[in-house]
Design a protein around this nucleic acid. Structure first.
Lengths: 128, 128
DNA sequence: ATTTCACCTGGAGTGCACTCCAGGTCAAGC
DNA sequence: GCTTGACCTGGAGTGCACTCCAGGTGAAAT
């Protein structure tokens, strides 16, 4: 029920244990109640995690957040650096994706050639 | 010296062990000599790996390649599916990157506001 | 009253993709 | 003639980010 944070319960406990999430409030029977504040932070964590930031760096960021507003310039620096990483990741994915697309086209050509009746000098082209 | 494949020696040995690379030719003293064929395949492996394909699926692909030309339609299917995965990855990265950029802008605003002399009703806005 | 359910705890285990280690071989350089 | 360096082997170890487990609690449903 309280996994509408988008993370599994185990993951949330893990994050709390390692300090990526500060101790979460509990209700009368000791169950975690995530505040809007927690949910907001988890949204940030999700962004960072899904863009490949390692937990160690998220912890650095978390520490800055805990240390108050005067760390904002540092947080900006950290996020800007990460943003550049993400940009590089995207560029790299695009590049490799292009190569994959080229391979697909190559395969299509091979199939097209070997599929032609018996004409041309094809049929054996594009092999090993 | 033979790591101009772009992979570490250990990684190459690992790939050979698990069958992602078929047994590599050796020179007189038993050292690996990567053929152009190997290098071409490793280039493909690099593309797939760097776009997040798990090794298990690369093994599936490797098997298709080994089984000859009649598996080309299947290879196309596999690569097309992976291409769609990559597209989705990029879209997701872009989406999260936007959120990160928004966060950066938000922080910039906070800094700008708290930095203004003493005017406006600012200075305390956007905290938490 | 008891089964079900959603949570709790500390700690152990998992899966992935490497990466390292100890001990060994050969060729080349000083 | 010995060290250096690049490679070899099988097998063990690593780091990351979870994920699972056994045993337990309290509220809710049958």
């Amino acid at each position: 029920m309280v996994e509408e944070t988008g993370f599994s319960l185990d993951t949330l406990r893990y994050y709390e244990r390692i300090g990526l999430l500060e101790p979460v409030e509990r209700n009368a029977v000791g169950q975690r109640r995530f505040s809007d504040h927690d949910l907001g932070w988890l949204g940030m964590v999700r962004c960072l995690r899904d863009t490949g930031m390692p937990i160690a760096e998220m912890l650095r960021f978390a520490k800055l957040v805990r240390n108050g507003e005067h760390t904002i310039p540092e947080r900006i620096t950290l996020l800007e650096s990460h943003d550049r990483d993400v940009e590089a990741q995207i560029a790299q994915l695009r590049e490799k994706q292009d190569a994959i697309k080229r391979k697909i086209h190559h395969y299509r050509d091979v199939v097209a050639l070997s599929g032609t009746p018996v004409s041309c000098q094809a049929a054996e082209a594009g092999s090993r």
